[in-house]
Write a protein that binds this DNA or RNA. Structure first.
Lengths: 388, 388
DNA sequence: CTTGATAATTCAATACAGTTGAGTTAATGC
DNA sequence: GCATTAACTCAACTGTATTGAATTATCAAG
């Protein structure tokens, strides 16, 4: 899913669309800039930038922020994003519930809601998605023409693979063209992605990966997923299922085991269950951690090794600027891993000139993936490309 | 290295350049096509395609192949690549020698040479590279204006990382801007890459990955490297060192070991050395294999497990169309791995609808990386992009 | 064998967007 | 103050792609 846009020939219209995104992206990354500087860094003439800026002002996507003084010459008029100029909807579909959230052009969350799912047929889910989306958009006060699109998030992997049958799946949807389906349903442009990828992109829009273009995001969901971002784009693989790091074999007490049997939410739950502790929510884990619950501590020390191995693999295979840990796990647990994980010196990532830590904590909590869905749309809004 | 081209704004000139590549790429992938069909699949008008075709004919990059009949309407004039319309130079720098090769627009090797290196200073190497390049271009009869560029291949990783100090390194070159240096030296556009990446791209230009856009290439060099291709582009990582799969930890008899201590050319050499067998060339290995030399057989069965693990990791992390094995190892050995490796059913790559095998043999032998260097240039010639 | 349908191609006019160069404006610094 | 600097605007120009009508060559049917 999140099929990469098909490369097509350029014409005046598509070139303009590309250039709008180029300009918009410079404005976003700079916070505020003048036209001349955009022209210098974008390879466009000042005149072209001026025209595009006029367009963007018209569309309300950017706003004037006064003039910059302190230098020689005519002070440059500064422009910045107008957060209220555009919004994105994130919809996360889980087996038991649908979540929806709205964020603005700058990635700031506006509002989010949850709706329990009582049936899992495509029709039932679609009804819930539509109702919840409309509710969320209405309550957030977002006019339809300001809605840039919707990012639909659902647990992967997609289509028939050897990983089918995991508990988290919604198995009935194979062979449905989800993008077309949801585009028709919601009436706005749609992207579909798994939770880990959405969460990864989210970090780039707001969060730990702001300003980064190549990184990996390890996502604690029910299992363990990974979103890979390279040059600002998701690495989705040939069939959209890249990043299934939970299924890689790692050494364990009895030979090798899939990583996510050792490092995941399900794995803590099982571990604590054997110690007689029921985990119903993240708060339960937080409490257990605060109380230094022995079983949890055991799990943590048992999980650190495999997680370290996984990070070493990710670093050497992808050479990212950083690896981010996040998802449906309490901050405290992620912070614990941040210190307990050992980063090998023998790694392409062990370098003296790095200005970002090798390992970071990202956005965590229940809404991570939902917000990530919306972030997919925001990210696309700023990603220059010649596409149909 | 192989820095991804900086995204810039589009203008008429850059749009045209993009469209040329779009058209050229359709011609390449089709073998032969007519203008109308190119227009349909590229999102351009027939008129635009006509103009671009006229340009390409002028430049000698394509040629007319007659008309296609059998259908209604005016028979379409067919166009195909003109192999002699452009050439690319591949230069591989190893600690002990420099290799150079020339391939044509279709990826067919024309000629290759080797020159022993007696000193490893930047100056000494540059002299050899320049002399050998000129020799190879002269003997191949390639006029300078037909030379599309040169791909320089050298063992990675580049710049200061935690993997420094391996035997294969040319350590003196840190902090030199290699692309600028070689561009000035050779007077043609230059790309710099490591051997595994070059070899991976090579498979796409000619070879096992023809027609594929997302795959991984496991490269047997001195160690073990990997080139990752996603949507026709190399995944190089933030610092150009993605694919260092040889350094990932895998289970071994004594705990875990870096993959390439178990699966690599150096590893066979050491293994056979303990059995008193000196390996000086690939032929030695081929002979040992043909003779079912026990030490080699032991190594093969010892290596199959870790290699299987590595492939499982690659599949689940990258979801490629296929994994290709190749590089400086005899075909027989690679074919042996093709059958001895076990591909787990629990993998995103285990799918019923695949039309490419999960594992394939790629180009192998001593010249793999050198030809790959040239392939980088050919690949770039066909890759649409708006760039400076 | 003629005629109509079909599809590729060309031609000429048009539109769109970016570039260029001259001119204007408003700061800094001596 | 006045020269310098830099951002910005205006108007003419340029390069490419698009559009729609006209042309050409083949197939298929009568």
């Amino acid at each position: 899913m999140t099929t990469p846009a098909k490369i097509v020939g350029a014409n005046a219209e598509r070139a303009r669309n590309h250039n709008r995104k180029v300009v918009l992206d410079r404005i976003r990354t700079s916070g505020q800039v003048g036209r001349a500087e955009i022209a210098r860094t974008s390879g466009l003439s000042t005149q072209a930038v001026s025209n595009i800026i006029a367009d963007l002002l018209d569309d309300g996507l950017i706003s004037e922020l006064g003039r910059r003084s302190g230098m020689r010459g005519l002070p440059a008029v500064q422009y910045g994003l107008n957060p209220k100029g555009g919004f994105a909807l994130g919809v996360e579909i889980r087996p038991d519930a649908v979540f929806a959230a709205v964020i603005d052009l700058c990635g700031t969350p506006i509002l989010s809601r949850r709706q329990t799912l009582f049936a899992q047929s495509l029709q039932a889910v679609s009804d819930t998605v539509l109702a919840l989306s409309n509710e969320v958009m209405r309550d957030a006060g977002v006019p339809r023409d300001r809605m840039l699109g919707a990012g639909i998030v659902m647990p992967g992997p997609f289509e028939a693979t050897g990983l089918e049958g995991s508990a988290s799946e919604l198995p009935l949807w194979h062979d449905t063209d989800l993008v077309t389906w949801f585009t028709d349903l919601l009436g706005v442009p749609v992207l579909v992605s798994n939770d880990a990828n959405a969460a990864a992109v989210s970090e780039r829009v707001t969060g730990a990966a702001k300003g980064l273009n190549s990184y990996a995001f390890l996502y604690f969901g029910t299992g363990l997923g990974m979103g890979i971002v390279q040059d600002g784009r998701l690495v989705t693989g040939a069939f959209g299922n890249a990043g299934e790091i939970g299924h890689i074999p790692v050494p364990s007490v009895n030979g090798t085991a899939p990583l996510e049997t050792l490092v995941s939410r399900l794995s803590v739950q099982r571990y604590l269950a054997t110690a007689g502790i029921k985990v119903r929510s993240s708060e339960d884990i937080s409490r257990a951690y605060a109380a230094c619950q022995p079983a949890l501590m055991d799990w943590l020390s048992a999980a650190s090794g495999p997680l370290s191995t996984a990070i070493a693999i990710v670093e050497n295979m992808l050479d990212p600027e950083t690896v981010i840990l996040g998802g449906a796990m309490p901050d405290a647990i992620i912070d614990h891993f941040l210190t307990s994980v050992t980063l090998p010196d023998r790694s392409v990532s062990h370098r003296s000139d790095r200005d970002v830590p090798r390992l970071m904590r990202g956005r965590s909590g229940r809404m991570t993936a939902t917000l990530g869905g919306a972030a997919l749309i925001i990210n696309r809004t700023f990603m220059p490309q010649i596409a149909a």
